[in-house]
């Protein structure tokens, strides 16, 4: 182990080593996800079912549904992201892969970032791609679709990054599910406000740019800070 660490520290192309580490971890996540194909569909099914409940529970009137559609779709996507968080680290924690990651010569925040990127690509991006279909069913006005997809693609990245902190903190607990949502949901509120705000602005004929820019700012802050918090939380969960 020691020799490996020394070798990587002395190697001339250290940056390439970092990038390779990221790619290797990222490919591993994709391979695991491919072999457990049905897990990929679960968040999408959840989104569709939650959205279906609202016309049944409130009213099927198209004008009313069009009013609440942006916020409703955003909240449903946020909850779908939240539910997928619990599995982010759990199986790796159970089979010891996380300990191997924490012992590897690559920095743990980098490997966490690879895992989070894969999570976003496999959960957040599919949600953003599928949500227009549900928008049609809720008679979302035509001007909202592009902004809805953009804001969700951007916002789910922030949700993955922030949520990973909560998932890393609770991964050692036997039943962390409800606690995880209690920890993470308050931190999700700014993402929801700016994401749904952008769609609302686009529908009302305003400019969606400012709210999208703020979502981007949130994503940038989370991208810069969250991997380090996730790595610290994982080390606590692993070593106590």
């Amino acid at each position: 182990m020691n020799r490996v660490r020394l070798a990587s520290a002395e190697s001339p192309a250290r940056d390439a080593g970092l990038w390779n580490g990221f790619l290797a971890q990222f490919r591993r996540e994709l391979a695991i996800a491919r072999r457990r194909g049905s897990d990929l569909l679960n968040p999408l099914m959840f989104l569709a079912l939650v959205v279906m409940l609202f016309p049944l529970g409130i009213s099927p009137r198209p004008d009313l549904l069009a009013d609440i559609a942006p916020g409703l779709l955003w909240v449903a996507a946020l909850l779908a992201m939240l539910l997928s968080l619990d599995t982010l680290f759990r199986s790796d924690f159970a089979d010891g892969s996380l300990e191997q990651m924490s012992l590897s010569p690559r920095p743990l925040p980098l490997l966490c970032l690879a895992k989070i990127t894969a999570h976003w690509l496999l959960t957040g991006v599919p949600l953003a791609l599928c949500v227009p279909l549900l928008g049609v069913m809720l008679s979302l006005p035509a001007t909202g679709y592009l902004v809805l997809m953009l804001s969700l693609a951007l916002g789910t990245a922030t949700l993955s990054l922030i949520g990973a902190i909560g998932a890393a903190l609770t991964v050692g607990l036997p039943r962390g599910g409800v606690l995880l949502s209690l920890l993470v949901l308050p931190l999700y509120i700014p993402v929801l406000i700016f994401g749904a705000g952008a769609v609302q602005a686009a529908i009302e004929g305003g400019i969606a740019g400012p709210a999208l820019a703020l979502s981007g700012a949130l994503a940038a802050i989370a991208l810069a800070a969250a991997p380090f918090a996730v790595a610290a939380a994982l080390r606590i969960s692993l070593n106590g």
């Binding site: 920890l183 610290a232 939380a233 606590i236 969960s237 106590g240």
Partner: peptide
């Protein structure tokens, strides 16, 4: 362990 987790949170 919980004390450290709470501190991070």
């Amino acid at each position: 362990q919980g004390a450290k987790a709470v501190a991070v949170l």
